[in-house]
Design a protein around this nucleic acid. Structure first.
Lengths: 209, 209
DNA sequence: TCCCCCAGGTAAGTAATACTTACATACATT
DNA sequence: AATGTATGTAAGTATTACTTACCTGGGGGA
């Protein structure tokens, strides 16, 4: 399914519904395979073999091969959201929130290369992704960033002469490009340093003075 | 071929060697098809039909379907390079050069959506791209940006407490994210406004004061 | 003039692969 | 016990990227 089926997600009234074992195995297999191969060169036969599940189950539990990819990304994104929310919740000022978010975001990409690879390299070339509920989660994250920025503008911490979406684009674009090469070539990222540099640049600009 | 054959490029001693008609027709067809479809859902049959050329010619003139894509990108990149070089050559200061480059880059993406789509969405998910001579051109552009920044640091226009590659990443990442949504969803870009906003943000940062 | 060579062009075929269909089995609920 | 539903399986099929073997025409050396 393009949208992860609600049935396989915890519900508060009836308790957790256990996932079909094969569904989890398939998602795990996809994650494992993505560590060493790109999505396009992973075959359905390979996925089912790695998962030790029948190939047709891919199509029972997901719309298609890409649906499986979207599901994997969806799961990562839920974690990502929780993590980020938890980190910035207690932080009072908007600028500090953003500084914190930049670090957490980079750390997430660094410690979870498959997640970064899917989000940065593997989904965007597929138009239907942008109709998926997985993309809706990504958009939600963008809106959260925008809200923080808007709060900062309100409180006088952030310039009010540039539209909020532009500021958000620069932040997210900066994070992505900071991590892109490392993700593609498998280099390590010095998270603290990169985050400090990026936040500093974002806040103060690179013009001298 | 992974690397565009030198024979099909103008040489100063023997004059231009004409491209095989079918080779050009195939590249044109790929460009046309990319306006409305993503690379993965364009079939070789469709390409040859659109080009009015035999399907096997794809494999005579290019390594494979992706080789054709890379060639198309390569041609765009040559234009892109010329355009940018021409614009910033006469500009004296590093900051003005960068301001100019940002505008030219955004304008290029805006007026050439297929180019932007290939570069931002279609090639990065394919590992072999990063071994291609097409990617070498992209890297060359990055190095040019780095050189401008380094000059700016030298001349005291640009901060010297942040590594040049980080500054470059922010600039290029910012440009990409500024254009990404427009490229994906086919929205228009207000080039002058976007470029001014981005340059302003990059130079001065978004912190108030 | 003849021959050959080779680049440009073609038609038919092949292996691989994403996805489908029809069927079997376990199991919970009535 | 019966029945319906969710899980799992095996055997396809249609599509598609890519290959192979062949044809054609023209330029240049003998």
């Amino acid at each position: 399914m393009a949208s992860p089926s609600a049935k396989n997600v915890r519900t508060e009234d009836r308790g957790p519904t256990p996932l079909p074992p094969a569904k989890r195995k398939l998602a795990d297999a996809m994650r494992r395979l993505l560590r060493t191969k790109d999505f396009n060169s992973i075959t359905t036969a390979e996925i089912s073999r790695t998962a030790e599940a029948n190939e047709a189950l891919i199509y029972r539990y997901f719309k298609d091969k890409r649906g499986l990819l979207h599901q994997v990304l969806y799961d990562y994104l839920l974690d990502f959201h929780m993590e980020i929310q938890g980190e910035i919740q207690a932080v009072p000022s908007a600028l500090d929130k953003l500084r914190c978010l930049v670090r957490a975001h980079i750390r997430m990409y660094d410690s979870n290369r498959v997640f970064a690879k899917i989000l940065l390299l593997e989904v965007r070339n597929f138009p239907a992704y942008f109709e998926s509920s997985t993309y809706r989660l990504v958009k939600g994250y963008g809106k959260m960033v925008s809200r923080i920025i808007a709060d900062g503008v309100q409180s006088g911490e952030i310039r009010d002469d540039i539209p909020v979406p532009r500021i958000r684009d620069l932040i997210l674009g900066g994070i992505e490009h900071f991590c892109m090469a490392a993700v593609i070539f498998g280099h390590e990222i010095s998270v603290a340093l990169a985050a400090d540099n990026l936040s500093d640049l974002l806040f103060k600009g690179f013009e001298k003075n």
